[in-house]
Write a protein that binds this DNA or RNA. Structure first.
Lengths: 230, 230
DNA sequence: GGTAATTAGTATCAAATCAATACTAATGTC
DNA sequence: GACATTAGTATTGATTTGATACTAATTACC
């Protein structure tokens, strides 16, 4: 059952295509990525988990399986982020690599032996092709978080609104206004309050919520050119 | 120089990976996609231009070259939209296909022999894997249009604001409010008025503009949950 | 036990944004 | 020259936003 993934020596046979996976989790107030030992050079001793692509080519399922194997748990959300190649170095001999991003809530059970979380701001050297994948993965999370329930998948099934806001701040890389955040959240009918409160040290206990999207598409807003430019 | 692309018979040799390209252009008020003759079955007689991926694997450059070859002109904008496989039928024997989307202004010079524009709402039968690519391409254009200058690449170098608005309406699939559209456009400093006007039949002549982005990132807006849901 | 510190959550309000409507401007058609 | 037609702008009321300041409930500390 436990598919063998990221075995650097056995996998180093020639193959046209690899499948790499960037598994992300919150690590305190930073985003962390899972790396495993082994790499293409002496200098690059860590790498993203990867596997070779079989001809059966059930891409998404392969990615989920690989992520589960490397992280010890099935990931809470997975999405393809693209194909990378263009001559950049990779732990495998593959000339093309398919990359996926996965997210998982903080602090699951123990990781498989050797695997380790690294904060994205403090990564060890990894092969350039995988470095590009990690950057793309982080950008993808940031961009997709308001069309996919990424933030909710980074949290446990129940969470406080402050925790949710912190995940948004973590992914967006900026502070968010508390009142506005909650107003928007309420208007979107995405969460449901539980009859439970959690006391975290001093201060008033926070109510717990769960992700329970209710409503449908609304806002046809005007055109936003803001992201364009230069 | 003219790389041979989409030659169904020669290309049908076995290969792990193909590179397919969805070339889009405005066609009146509809979006059109370029197809070429040949397909995997009697029923599917048209297909997206595609090529096999060489081991050199300069992915983006291969895509641009393939698009230029199939469309007769270098495309104005190209972006990878993902890898597709999962067992769906494709004109090639490739188990995995890399797809790119390209855009080109309306009505270039003549197309290469056999190639033809089809409006996306009236496509002939194509192989299922390519059908998925076309759908993904259209969605990608819609989503990326406010972070990439896609709309401007679908137009000639100079254009009227009404033309620009029509491209937005075409891609967004909905009407846009004229005054709001222009107000946002002005605030974004994306276009520059020329000293030229164009008279299109009756009515007041429209001023011509060109794409000349000036300003930098502004609007840190609040969190938008609107796209999330159900 | 009481007071301060701390975190959760809400209310108020001014500024910015938006979209509907109605207007002015410049051209071709008859 | 009146009118239809398209370009482009002004006005206005409604909605959204974010800053500030407030209330609420708990722990820390004396």
């Amino acid at each position: 059952m436990r598919a063998r993934v990221s075995a650097p020596l056995r996998a180093r046979r020639s193959s046209a295509v690899s499948l790499d996976i960037v598994i992300c989790t919150p690590h305190g107030r930073r985003l962390a990525v899972l790396l495993v030992p082994g790499g293409p050079s002496m200098r690059e001793r860590w790498m993203l988990p990867w596997t070779t692509l079989t001809d059966a080519a059930a891409l998404d399922e392969t990615a989920v399986t690989a992520a589960a194997s490397a992280g010890g748990v099935r990931p809470a959300w997975v999405e393809q982020i693209g194909a990378f190649g263009d001559g950049k170095r990779h732990p495998s001999t593959a000339t093309v690599s398919l990359a996926y991003v996965a997210v998982t809530p903080e602090r699951q059970r123990a990781l498989p032996a050797g695997a380790k979380w690294f904060e994205v701001d403090a990564l060890p050297p990894v092969a350039p092709r995988q470095r590009t994948m990690i950057e793309t993965a982080v950008v993808t999370l940031r961009v997709r978080m308001d069309s996919s329930p990424i933030a909710f998948r980074l949290l446990a099934p129940t969470f406080t609104l402050t925790e949710l806001q912190e995940v948004y701040e973590l992914l967006l890389g900026r502070r968010v206004h508390k009142a506005s955040f909650r107003r928007s959240l309420q208007a979107a009918w995405l969460v449901e309050p539980m009859d439970e409160w959690r006391s975290e040290g001093r201060g008033r206990p926070a109510q717990l919520y769960r992700y329970a999207p209710r409503k449908r598409r609304g806002g046809r807003r005007g055109v936003r050119f803001e992201l364009l430019g230069g």
